[in-house]
Amino acid sequence: MALFEARGIHKRFGRQVVLERIDLSFEAGRLSGIMGPNGAGKTTCFNVLTGRFKPDRGRVVFDGEDITGLSPSAIARKGIARSFQIMSLFDEYSALENIVIALPDVRARGFNMIDSLSADSEAADRAAAVLARVGLAGREHRRAGDLAYGERRALEVGVALAARPRLLFLDEPTSGLGTEATARLADLVQDLKRDHSIVVIEHDMQFLFGLADTISVIHWGQVVAAGTPDALRENKWVQRSTLGAPP
């Protein structure tokens, strides 16, 4: 059975239907892609899957457990972490503190009111390792708000990664990045793929076709095509779409 499944998801805002009968399933150990043009409902879909919005209808199942309608924090504690398209960091904290606060065992003692967190060298070491993995070694003590744009993107992924997620959602991780930085991020995601189950939203086709094992195409709030990158290259809809020719 798939690690994560969404069945028949409906979501509307007022009278506008944003998602209609979305079925998605993500396998463990795979990198699954979601693509589609701007405004297709990709991010809304992510927001429903990670708990920011409750679906009007449909079910979300993670590892056999129904997590529909749970709060974002409850879903996060189940082992689902996400990054944000519009960067969402703790800007006044250093890069290291951003990671430390997201570590599961720090979260577990969130109500500890007496022990100094900055004196916890074990947590700091683990956080430093996460930073190194996303290519931010040497930036530990820089404030997140003072990091360069590309570094902030990497930290976005790092904060999600810090939670040791069983499933990692990345919302347009290359958003706003130049060619070179995008290539570096692709290398990072390729590396993370070795030991993580990942779901990526992208509209950069090249990025996604190079990395994903399977891709679902969302348009007008519906899944219009799904399959391996190779299968999608043959797909009439994808060929005709305004997304540009697949690489």
């Binding site: 990670t50 709060s71 924090s73 944000f84 939670a163």
Partner: peptide, 8 residues
């Protein structure tokens, strides 16, 4: 972000 990191 605090919420999505798992804090109530």
């Amino acid at each position: 972000r605090a919420r999505f990191v798992g804090y109530n």
